[in-house]
Structures are given as C-alpha cells and as structure tokens.
Design a binder for these strands. Structure first.
Lengths: 271, 271
DNA sequence: CGAATAGTGTCTGTAAGACACTATTCC
DNA sequence: GGAATAGTGTCTTACAGACACTATTCG
C-alpha cells in the first residue's frame, strides 16, 4: 500500500475550508421535584449574556506521540467538567453513575454566526451532579427547571427568564423528547436515582418526567416483571416517610437495560 | 450589540485546527427478497479498492450572496445523488417517496487516516432507487445484500467479498439495528414499498428485515387497528399471484407514522 | 389510634397468537 | 378441480388497569 502511504504524506488537511465541531451536553437531573437541565450563562460573544448548554470545541491535545485528537465523547465529558467547575481529575468520578449517550447532530448553516459549526449533542442523566459553578467563558452555571424554559411545540421559546443561545432551545426540546421516550422501553429511570432506590423513587422519576400520575401497585408489578432490570438488595429503607408508612424494599440496577414489555404513556396509546 | 458585531468582524475561523465533517448515507432498499445497502467501491486512497457508504464532505457552495454552506442533510442528499450517478437536477425527484433521517455521528480519532473526520450518518429508505452507477472518486456502485457483508455482533466484518472502508461496518450495523427497531413502533415499512401497496407487501418487508415469518391475518389485524397509519384506496390489485389467489386490497400511507400498539419482535419479548 | 405508604390479591376488558373456515383467483 | 392467496371469525391466554384489602410505620 505504498500508494496509500504516498497519498497520506502529501495530504494537506488545511486545503479544506474550515468547519468546527462542538460537543454540547444536555445534562438532566431531578431536583426539588422538577426535571432540570444544566445551563451556563455566556460571558463572551456570540450571544453574550444568554444561556447555553455546556459545550466545547473538539480539539487536539498533546500526548507523548505528538498531537492526538479527542473523541466526541471525550469532548462532551470535558464540556461537562470544564463548564461546571469540576477539575479534569474528577472526570472519571463524575461519570460514575452518570449515563452518557449521543443525541443528535446539528449543522444548519448560520446556527453559529462565527462560522460553520456542527454540534454533536450528547445527553447526560444523573442522580445528583455536584453543584455547578461557572467555567471558562461563562459567568454562571446552574440547574434550570425545564418548565422555566417555556419551550413550545415548534422547538422554540416563549418569553422566559432564560433566553437560550444558538439553536439550543431546539436541542433541549429534542433531548427531552428522547428522555421521555426512553423511559417507556428502557431502564433509563434508574439513571436518575442513586445506586440503591425504592420503587417509589423510580415512580417519582416517571411522574416528573412525564408529568403524570402513575398507579403505584401496577407500576411495581410492571417493573418487577421485566427480567434482570431490577435486583432486590434484600434491604429495606431505614424508616418510612415523614407522614408514616411502611418501610420499602431497596433495589439496584440489574444487568438488563430494556423494559419489556414497555410502559406506554397514556397520551400516546392507540396512536 | 456592537460588541457582538466587533467580535464577529475580527473572528478568524482558520485559527482553529482543521476538522472535516462528512455526511454518509446508509441507503436501504429491498431487492430480490433481500435487504440491500448501497455501497460504492473507492477508486482513490485512503482505502483504495474497498467498499464504502456513499458520503461527501460538508462544503460551501456559491450563491448570489457569496459563500454559503450547505446543511448536513443537503450534503447527505448530494452524496446520494453524486455517488450514484444521478444528476443534481434529479435530487428533488429521488427524494420523492424516500425517507431520510439522521442516524448517528462518528468521530473516533484515527477513523480516517488523513485527518480528524466527524461523519454524520444518515439513513435513506426507499422502495426502488434508480440503478446506481459510479460517481466521482468511485469505480463502482451497487446494491449489496446486507447478509453478504458478514457483519458480526461486535460491529465488525468476518471474511467477505465486500470489505468495508473506515468504520463503515460499524455504521451499517447501527443503521440496520435502527431500521429493525423502527419497524416495531413506526410505519417505516411503508417507506420500502411503492405508493400503493398491499398488506402482503408490508408483511414481506417485516419478514425480510427481521428475517422471520409473520402470521398473515394477525399482522393485518394489527396494522389496520393502528389509527391513521394506513388508508384503504378502495382499489384491489389487478390480479392475484402467479400461483393463483384472491386479489388483495390496496393501501396508501396515512397521516400517522406511529404504529401503536407496536409489533414486538419475538426474540425481544419478555426482556 | 389515625394517616400515610408498601405491598398483595383479584376482577375485568382488551388484545395477541393460534387456527379453522370462507372467498377468490390463477392455472 | 386443485392449489394458492386474501380475508373473517373465534377461542385461549396474557396482561394492563382498577381497586379492594392487608401490612407497616410515623406522629
């Protein structure tokens, strides 16, 4: 393959017009009975002062073998770490118990006024990220209830306290749809709770993300009938709720991530 | 916002190290009772002589307002048109009745030996694309039965007549999974058949994509019970099959794209 | 004890899968 | 007529949703 070798030696990557790639993260968690997304307040143009998803340009870093590029997923993790004031050292730590997955890519011309930017959006689900604090290029970072974003069915925003930069309203909208859909047929809800949890904890996740009430006993029957989704620890909670009540059994994530048969949202049933 | 304006005026996009973005298309259709994917044979390095998905670098084109970049979707359509010998003029035409959707993005360092390349993969589903012919940079283009690719569960290839370039084995594997999954809960099967079709045509799509047998009458009951998925045209086929048989009713896609309740694949039922 | 929560048992309606049976149509 | 396909009717089983009832636990 000397042909291939010659070709590569003479290849000039800068012959192409520049495109930039970013990894943006839609991080979701549940706080105070509300579904919240992690946002940062931009401290520089473009969209200075508006709110945005934590994101980062895909970039090379130095290794002993010279310049080495990071993967999209690494860039997403770095965005989550940088912009929330977590040290790079704690990256493996914040990933413990945090579920990261790719959402979608966005590349409409003009979505970034600087140049053509393709953003690969990721989703992060977690029970409790550490308290955010502003990172480079941002003046603030906080968890914002998604209801406060006033997202419309057209994936835009109505008047809000948190105006979003770029096309991030659209990305967050898509991310929420993904999260709601995945609760139906996967064990994603377990990503929102701590390592051990009760069925009531899980039910609360569904009720908050879907904004519905769910019948407790049927819910328990359904989740426990899915094989290898939940594993009983044999332990119980140390006490009932403040208002009284029996102590409930504790569970842990099982080997399976699929919820079969699925729980279908009422509004979607019957097409 | 003069601050923003100043910032943009002085912004140099070439300050960033180069990344390239491509749109690659996993085009699927059914030919001769086989699920087939569109592949091109590369006629230049890298991976000269190996098979690849039709793809194209995201690039600017000239308009009356100067340089304007295309969207990811436009690049995907262009890849489908260019590399299959269809003229650019026929692009709207080939899109008639072809369903295009984004699959996933791939950006592992080293996946392209030339430079860092992020590929945004799209899926295209159609009843019958026009006959492919080699485009720029390719020596051949044809529909290859996915079974001939010998894809393994690890998203690699076993020995095959069609060795794939880059990480395209992985992309195709992911695309097939997506297609199989979407048959369960959407009307995607209608994208594989002509504008009017019989229930047997649809059933054949399921049987080929899932590689299973499906009970005809239960299948019909299921699809007809999904509201607004199919619309009876009132017409029948002009004749039965070669071997005899009653004439069957013809249907058209309805307004709905969701199949609710879903048809679950046997191997996935019960978790 | 009374209120609140966890968990079990049971009934009912819906629908999936299986299959028998009728209706056509080609050869 | 015989084979093949389209479409209908019905039986059985499984399970979702509803709800009554028991078991705990806190104040």
């Amino acid at each position: 393959m000397t042909n291939e070798d010659d070709f590569l030696k003479n290849y000039d990557p800068r012959a192409f017009a520049p495109v930039a790639v970013t990894a943006d993260v839609v991080a979701l968690t549940i706080r105070q009975d509300q579904l919240c997304v992690l946002l940062v307040k931009r401290a520089r143009p473009p969209f200075n002062g508006l709110w945005a998803l934590p994101g980062s340009f895909l970039r090379p870093h130095q290794t002993e073998n010279g310049e080495q590029w990071e993967s999209l997923e690494q860039a997403a993790i770095r965005a989550l770490a940088d912009k929330t004031g977590l040290s790079a050292a704690s990256v493996p730590e914040i990933l413990t118990g945090i579920h990261l997955e790719q959402l979608c890519s966005y590349g409409e011309p003009g979505r970034d006024p600087r140049m053509t930017v393709v953003s690969v959006a990721y989703m992060a689900f977690g029970p409790d990220f550490s308290e955010p604090s502003a990172g480079t290029g941002t003046s603030e970072a906080c968890w914002v209830a998604v209801s406060a974003l006033n997202l419309t069915a057209e994936r835009q925003q109505a008047a809000t306290e948190f105006p979003l930069a770029f096309d991030h309203a659209q990305i967050i909208y898509d991310g929420l749809e993904r999260a709601r859909a995945k609760l139906e047929y996967t064990g994603l809800a377990t990503a929102f709770v701590k390592e051990t949890f009760t069925l009531a904890d899980l039910r609360r996740v569904y009720e908050i993300v879907w904004d519905t009430k769910i019948h407790p006993s049927n819910f328990a029957r359904k989740l426990l009938s899915a094989r290898h989704l939940l594993v009983a620890t044999g332990e119980n909670t140390s006490r009932g709720s403040v208002a009284g009540g029996r102590r409930s059994a504790l569970y842990r994530r099982g080997a399976s991530l699929v919820l079969m048969p699925p729980i279908l949202r009422k509004e979607l049933r019957h097409g």
